[in-house]
Amino acid sequence: MKNILILLTFTVALAACDSGDKTEQLKAELATLKQEIQEKTVKVNELEAQIAQLDPNFSKKQDRSILVKTNKVLQQDFVHKIQVQGQVASRRNITLGAETMGRAIQVNVETGDDVKRGQLLVKFEAESTINSIKEVETALSLATTIFEKQANLWKQEIGTEVQYLEAKNRKESLERQLATLKSQLDKAEIRAPFNGRVNDVMVNLGELVQPGLPVVSLVGNEQMYLKAEVSEKYINDFQVGDEVEVYLPSIKQSFKSKVSAISYVINPANRTFQLDVKMTNQSLELKPNQFARLQLADYTSEKTIVVPSDIIQQDNIGDFVYAVNTKEGKKVADKVRVERGLTYDGNTEVLKGLKAGDEVITEGYRDAVTGISIQVAK
Rank of each mutant, 00 (worst) to 15 (best):
S59G: 11
P211M: 11
D358H: 03
I105H: 01
T32I: 03
E359I: 01
Q295N: 14
T41C: 04
Q295V: 12
Q62T: 09
I4V: 09
V107S: 09
E232Q: 13
I37T: 11
N93E: 08
Y247K: 13
T41R: 09
Q290I: 03
Y299T: 05
A15I: 14
L5G: 02
G318M: 08
Q156F: 07
K22G: 08
K155R: 11
P214F: 08
G371P: 11
K123V: 11
D63E: 02
F10C: 07
L7H: 10
V216R: 07
V12N: 04
G196L: 03
S132P: 04
S260W: 00
E222T: 13
S173C: 02
N169F: 04
Q85Y: 12
D113F: 15
Q53K: 14
E229G: 04
T370L: 04
A323K: 15
A179L: 12
Q282F: 07
F238G: 06
L286I: 07
G241Q: 01
K69R: 07
T280V: 15
I66H: 13
G196M: 11
K378T: 12
T100E: 11
I4F: 02
A179H: 01
Q295W: 13
Q314C: 08
L67I: 14
E302D: 10
I266P: 04
L174P: 03
I105E: 12
K60G: 02
G102W: 10
K355I: 07
A139D: 12
D298F: 09
V203C: 00
Q150M: 14
